[in-house]
Amino acid sequence: MSALAHEVPLAWYLLLSAALFALGVVGFLVKRNLITVFMSIELMLNAVNLSFVTFAYQWHAVKGQIFVFFVMMVAAAESAVGLAIIIAVFRARATLAVDRIDLMKL
């Protein structure tokens, strides 16, 4: 690990993370498909994970990486439940367009 002497400024990683997060927000706003909106949320989670790993590197703190590990686990659970909800919504509405899914009740 120390063989890879770090000479890329860590700010670049953080800027990449910020850019990915902003792209995720844009996707959340722009996309009209329920599954793609959900994918944008995953993109935002990944962006935050990148900055966690960057700070873990900067501070030599392994707990930052453990945070990422837990975020991954929770994201796995979240995507399983979320996709099940999407399937249930699709069964009830027969559509995936978020414009037409605007009521909580049937």
Binding site: L4, Y13, V53, A56, Y57, V68, F69
Partner: peptide
């Protein structure tokens, strides 16, 4: 992103 984690020394992640 996995490759970037590798560059940051987080092999497991």
């Amino acid at each position: 992103l996995a490759v970037l984690y590798l560059l940051l020394g987080a092999e497991f992640l």
